[in-house]
């Protein structure tokens, strides 16, 4: 069994259309660790020791958040700045995260076709996520394809919230039960609820 930790970050939790259901569902999955960063650190005083211990004790680190201005909500940046210390996460003696998986579960307001060169967001979504991808690389972590929902504001009307949340739960359980094909995921661009590389039991 892989040890999975989910870091959830949404400062406007109560206005959320999708993420709060994902968070609620993730919190209910047995055998994984779920952390609501804004709940644990409402005043941003992140406990570096606690967080580093959590990282050491898990194999898969998953950040779940809505895309804000082509980036993460601010607390994740704060968390990175403080927790991923030189000598712990990277640099001389910083081998604590080597070989682990860093995964993302993000929602984006724009539609699928906006995230391409001809689209109005001009870049594919993976481009916006390269800071995290390179962070993972520097820490010698794997970076499998992120779990993405486009057009998230329209998702409730389109009836996509439920399948996305269900897919999220399947994803988390598969990781927990070692049924998630990380090798395949690493070759993919993004994964959706209907393209999850989940293998059979075992």
């Amino acid at each position: 069994m892989a040890r999975l930790i989910v870091y959830y970050a949404h400062p406007g939790h109560k206005y959320s259309h999708v993420n709060k259901y994902m968070a609620r569902a993730a919190g209910a999955v047995d055998g994984i660790t779920f952390v609501d960063l804004y709940r644990d650190y409402p005043r941003f005083d992140i406990d570096v020791n606690v967080e580093q211990r959590r990282l050491v004790e898990h194999d898969v680190v998953l950040f779940q958040f809505p895309m804000f201005w082509y980036s993460t909500p601010s607390i994740i940046k704060e968390w990175e700045d403080l927790v991923l210390e030189h000598g712990f996460a990277y640099g001389a003696g910083g081998e604590n995260l080597a070989g682990k998986q860093m995964m993302l579960a993000v929602t984006a307001a724009g539609p699928d076709d906006a995230y391409r060169h001809e689209g109005y967001q001009h870049y594919p979504i993976r481009t916006f996520l390269t800071p995290l991808e390179q962070t993972a690389r520097l820490c010698k972590m794997h970076f499998p394809a992120p779990y993405v929902l486009y057009s998230s504001l329209k998702a409730p009307a389109a009836g996509l919230v439920e399948p996305h949340v269900d897919g999220y739960v399947r994803l988390l359980e598969a990781i927990r039960d070692d049924r998630y094909d990380f090798a395949a995921a690493e070759r993919m661009n993004v994964v959706h609820f209907d393209t999850l590389p989940v293998g059979e039991e075992g």
């Binding site: 406007g12 259309h17 993420n19 809505p66 895309m67 804000f68 307001a109 724009g110 929902l149």
Partner: peptide, 21 residues
Amino acid sequence: AAESGQREDSDFKCQANGPGT
């Protein structure tokens, strides 16, 4: 507006910020 090519800053802001999802 975005599709018809009127790329005003305000459009990007709302779209990109697009929180609450």
